[in-house]
Write a protein that binds this DNA or RNA. Structure first.
Lengths: 140, 140
DNA sequence: TCAAACTTGTTTGTATACGAACAATTTTTC
DNA sequence: GAAAAATTGTTCGTATACAAACAAGTTTGA
């Protein structure tokens, strides 16, 4: 009976956690054949955008902390989807690129990426979809 | 240059992940003194609502899978914030309650719970806040 | 009734997520 | 040009998140 009037179901954090869980579940179902997680797909997509990118910068672009990024990079690299080379200008850095296999997988997976977004937003009207994206951007 | 026109920043899943990350960061800052994570706090709040609740039911109420719930319950129980008893009617079940320490911590933490929500939604007008909650509920 | 189906909870393994502490390197500042 | 500050990346530890396989107990249905 919510002692202090705190209703979990109405808290933005709880709603965001649940909405994210649902989006992830939809992603997992559609990407089962590709063997990619949402963060792995995000990393591939951003590496493709950037052509070549350091680990830290990729983390900023995909909203992953350096420790998390290291794990994602490691798994993509082990699977041969990306390849790294030492940066000559800055010896702390490793620059990462898609391999041919990575580019092929990304190309094959991309339409499912749009499918995930479409299915996740399916309960909303086009206008509501735009509103939701706009409001989410405002609170990030 | 988004080869297939796939813009990560506009995908609902990516926005939800980032918004959830920010909400969690705000929670962590405000709850540092209480030593509670968002899921632990959610579990305490729901146990208080229900008075006594089984592990699986609590998982459904707080949107946690049974394996996750077990970890959360274990940590709260180890800290003496909740206590479980074997259910006589259904011998598979354990029923969980707040201890006095748990009830006290929940009472002390609750105003910070509201603070997290307020800070997270701060960039939005009251009308926008209501809209965001409504749209999130629709896509869950 | 009794077998099938379901529910409750556990365990294992993989993948984020991130704080904290750290080493190596580069940039800034004086 | 040297000290200070910042950046890049690693490692360790803790906490979700969930699939899959499982054991044990309960409910359903023919």
């Amino acid at each position: 009976m919510s002692a202090g009037g705190y209703r979990l179901e109405e808290q933005i954090g709880f709603l965001l956690r649940r909405a994210h869980q649902r989006a992830t579940a939809i992603f997992s179902a559609r990407f089962a054949g590709h063997g990619l997680t949402p963060t792995q797909f995000a990393a591939l997509a951003k590496i493709a955008d950037e052509d070549e990118v350091s680990q830290n910068r990729l983390g900023r672009l995909t909203a992953m902390d350096p420790a998390t990024m290291k794990g994602v990079i490691g798994r993509l690299s082990e699977r041969g989807l990306i390849a790294g080379r030492a940066d000559q200008e800055d010896r702390r850095r490793t620059q990462w690129r898609l391999t041919e296999a990575g580019a092929a997988l990304l190309a094959a997976a991309q339409k499912d990426g749009f499918g995930v977004t479409a299915e996740t937003l399916d309960p909303l009207s086009p206008r509501e979809r735009a509103t939701l994206l706009r409001l989410l951007e405002k609170i990030i």
